[in-house]
Amino acid sequence: MARDLAIDLGTANTLVYMKGRGIVLNEPSVIAVNRQTGEVLATGREAWQMIGRTPGYIVAVRPLRGGAITDFEITERMIRLLLQRVGVSRFTRPKVVICVPSAITEVERRAVTDAARRAGAADAQLIEQPMAAAIGADLPIDEPIGNMVIDIGGGTSESAVISLGGIVALEAVRVGSFDIDASIQAYVRREHGIAIGERTAEEVKVAIGSAAETEDESQAEVRGRDLMTGLPRTVVLTPEEVRVAIDDTLSSIIDSIKRCLAKAPPELAQDFLVRGMYLVGGGGLLRGLPQRIEKETNVPVRMSNMPLEAVVMGAGHCIEHYDALKTMFMGARR
């Protein structure tokens, strides 16, 4: 008998929680395929290392963009391989709970559940990421208290107000960490005339990226291809330049948080001033981001203890208490 699974199918990373076992898989959501034969060559970390470095006949892609499936067939194969790696076979078909962005359309919702069922799941249910994040971040969402969670992922940023076991207000934008990386790429191209890859842009963000001025800032050397000569060239980027590059992207994320705050009923809004808002997701790890959100909203911001695992832990809790929490799944209420 297969153990039931919870999957955080993120744009950046995929995490799998197995009932009674905990998190058994944490890998980048990347798959490398041979274009000529259609064979899968690598998944996860191995495929991630191939991005931007493959010969013509190999393509290493992220099948999800903005939290949505951009390539149904590739996603299905990736889910199938993931399930195989955690022990699912044609004879052992588990129940699966998958975390998806709340702004997902009906078509996208069906695409995810169909992919999971075809990949070997006996039943596939979906749960909104902010809800799973709030459960995983251990917020007291069972109480009549306003809990606000902000989940900044690779492709989406979602804010939700949760009280008494349900979502009261919700706001989502299809902007996330990858858009921050893309902003850095575009800035370097525009201001320095060199082209850099998405992995390099991510490294710049991790090394010197910040949302607000911080102590002990340093510069970073960036290597890329000169757009005029086509030759390799190195430029030096300052943290100030990176802040300018990513400002618009961060502003759209912060604007969506403000819209969510504005939607909250007054009785719950007053709780935020005391309890603060909880930040989860890899995007929340950007230096100075909690401080900037706090400055722009006048509401304290706290980091979750497990920002990268909160969503899958929340979904894991739903799989452990499947019958009691099945009303929480998307579709169950509609």
Binding site: I135, D138, P140, I141, D142, L164, G165, M313, G316, H317, E320, H321, A324, L325, T327, M328
Partner: peptide, 13 residues
């Protein structure tokens, strides 16, 4: 539903 979301219940996970 509410009991399953309590802090004690989540401790198990």
């Amino acid at each position: 539903h509410i009991d399953a979301l309590s802090s004690e219940s989540r401790r198990g996970v």
